Simulated assay, not measured.
Amino acid sequence: MKRQRYAAPAREAVDPAVFAKPPLADWSEYDALLRGPHWPAIDALNALRHDTTMPRFAAQDHALLADGLHYEQRIAECGLIATRERNWHDLLNALVWLRHPTLKAALNRRQVQEIARMGPRQRSRPQYAMTHFDEAGVLVRLADPALLALWDAHDWHGLFWRERAAWVDGRIAVTVFGHALLEHALTPGKLLVGKALVCGSGVDVAWDSLAAATAARIARGQLLTDPLELRPLPLSGIPGWHRENGAEAFHHATPCYQPLRPGRRYPPPW
């Protein structure tokens, strides 16, 4: 059966309640762009760039696309991020660029290297890994290694119910990087599953530091060389992320909780 492509709600139809819960609640510094009655202009996005070396957003129109460049090549060679106006997916991509320019730039450099190696019509396993992370990626800060055995076994009831307190006291924490995940969160109650990179670190490590360290490893080719590096993480199981996960039954029979495939193994946290 062909999977139906997700269609984000119209701007005026978005339930404001989605902006008060994770993951969109974590992007409240951009409330004016997300909740305002009008779509932000491209110039308004560019005005928020704190780093002048960061690529600029450019309206994706026929004139821009006439250069014939691949999306990633245009960023690297011209410093322009093709951005569709009045489009949730591209607006949220822009917000991720604004928050994590170093991490996005590291992905872009690696993508361009792979395009030079493979050509624009074929994709390598590193490209698939980087695209999965760019669209649906999450960073996980793991302070309690004992939780890893539950995750390795896809013991979702154990990870999200028996160890529910771990998600509250900081023994495990997550931040969303993938803009497609943020887009899907515009639909109330939608079950979200992220593609996770896991860092073993203390609870006091700031997300900015973790993102910078992740970017450095991606740039060096130490992360995202294969899609199998990415761990599935059903975000809807985290306390406060789904309206029904306060009941134990949710953690026994929810479609986002998939069993471990035979032979599937995950790399350890870096």
Score class of each variant (00 low, 15 high):
259 P>T: 05
84 R>T: 08
104 K>V: 03
48 L>E: 07
145 P>E: 07
58 A>E: 12
94 A>M: 06
125 R>S: 14
156 W>T: 06
76 A>P: 09
102 T>A: 15
84 R>Y: 07
46 N>R: 00
241 W>D: 09
98 L>Q: 05
254 T>H: 04
226 D>I: 00
167 W>K: 06
32 A>C: 09
215 A>Y: 08
196 A>N: 06
111 Q>A: 11
122 Q>E: 14
22 P>M: 04
189 G>V: 10
55 P>D: 11
144 D>M: 07
269 P>N: 04
15 D>Q: 04
87 N>G: 11
161 W>M: 08
248 E>S: 15
202 G>K: 00
191 L>T: 09
211 A>L: 12
264 R>M: 14
8 A>I: 08
246 G>L: 13
179 H>D: 03
187 T>Q: 10
195 K>W: 09
68 G>C: 13
103 L>T: 01
143 A>Q: 12
94 A>V: 04
83 T>C: 10
223 L>R: 14
220 R>E: 15
105 A>I: 00
87 N>Q: 08
36 G>M: 06
192 L>G: 10
214 T>L: 06
65 L>V: 15
169 D>L: 07
33 L>F: 03
46 N>G: 11
57 F>C: 06
187 T>D: 09
86 R>E: 11
134 D>C: 06
214 T>S: 12
179 H>Q: 00
31 D>A: 15
100 H>D: 15
111 Q>C: 08
175 T>K: 10
68 G>W: 10
79 G>K: 06
39 W>L: 01
124 S>I: 02
172 I>K: 05
